[in-house]
Computed example of a mutant assay.
Amino acid sequence: MYWQFLPCHGARAYREAMTMNITLNNGVEMPALGFGVFQTPPEATASSVTEALTVGYRLIDTAASYLNEREVGDGITQSGLDRSEVFIETKLWISDYGYEEALHAFEKSAGKLGVEQIDLLLLHQPLTTAFERTVGAYTALEKLLADGKVRAIGVSNFMPEMLSELLRQTSVVPAVNQVEVHPYFTQPEVQRVNAEHGILTQAWSPMGGITSYRGDSSRSTFTDPVIGAIATAHGKSPAQVMLRWHLQEGRSAIPKSVKPERIAANVDVFDFELTGDELAAIDGLDTGVRGGPDPASVTLDGFHRDIPEA
């Protein structure tokens, strides 16, 4: 992976959001900072995506299981930007795993998004109880990549043992592994293994928002005194400090919000730099406690969801 990082300040921050790119392991360039729409209601998705693109985001992350891909496509259209200016990332759900099923799932997602080509297509979870279906789905992604229907492929929530098994049974090294990473859960071993294979670690819940409703409600990254002190020192918010931490440590991050002021604030992270000591202090907050579900617990019995047709 290769980083292109051209610093700028103040009102020009949105321009750097478009120039801070990561070159993935297959040569495709992807914006480092993206906009996520997990749990964004369909009725709020199009306007949020349009707002994000207006203030400078150029990477939009969604998923079939979010049930808002169609509205993501609407928001991109409403932005007035040319398709080539927006990097679209989505994920296939486990209910559509298997070779033929995954090929059809691509058609469903592309149809809803209103595009012929998806920039980055991921498997949303490893299906550990039926891993042959996971392999079949990834093999379909390899076919879509070879046919030019996607520009890059990858995975999400793959722990090292599952990633190793996938690599053993397939040919194309994933470009991205999107996993839970925030100051309270940094997954250093996952990041290390990703880096060994040239796989970009992309952080979901990059500011630890998941801890607010699935973890210990008495402790929040947004009120953490260490992060708060760093934010005060730079005249920034804790959220901005956490996003800057991700970017400086070489990760991609995909924050989400439906509030225009927060959407704008989250992209305004290019006019300051954290010191080595500050980065280490944030690293030191890791609790080792996962906020989301253990990937090994995700099964068809417990997490089946019918993904509608396009």
Rank of each mutant, 00 (worst) to 15 (best):
I227G: 09
W245F: 07
V241L: 00
I254M: 08
D268S: 12
V267N: 09
A203N: 03
H246Y: 03
G209C: 13
S205C: 12
S252H: 02
Y184W: 05
A231C: 02
P183E: 12
I263L: 12
R219N: 08
R244E: 01
R214G: 13
H182G: 09
G198W: 03
F222M: 12
T223R: 04
T232S: 15
P206S: 11
G208Q: 14
A229S: 15
S212M: 14
H197K: 12
F222A: 13
F222V: 07
S205A: 15
G228S: 07
T221C: 15
R251W: 04
T211E: 06
A253F: 01
G198V: 10
I227R: 00
M242D: 03
H234F: 00
K259F: 06
E180N: 08
N194I: 03
V258F: 00
G209H: 13
V226I: 14
F272Q: 00
G228M: 00
T223D: 11
R251M: 11
Q191F: 08
V241Y: 07
K259H: 14
P255C: 04
L200H: 06
I210C: 13
Q202N: 12
A233V: 11
F185Y: 15
A195G: 13
A253I: 06
L200Y: 07
Q191P: 04
E180T: 07
A265W: 12
R251I: 02
G235W: 09
G198P: 10
I210P: 02
Q187K: 12
D224S: 04
G198R: 10
A233L: 11
G250M: 01
V241C: 00
R251F: 11
S218H: 14
P225W: 06
S257Y: 05
R192C: 01
R214L: 15
P238I: 00
D216V: 12
I199D: 08
I199W: 08
A253W: 01
V181P: 08
R219L: 10
G215S: 12
A195I: 04
V179T: 11
V267Y: 03
P206L: 07
T221F: 02
V241G: 03
R251C: 03
T186F: 03
T201I: 11
V267T: 10
V181Y: 11
S212V: 10
I230P: 11
V241Q: 00
Q187V: 10
Q191V: 13
T211D: 12
Q187C: 09
M207V: 15
R192A: 14
V241K: 06
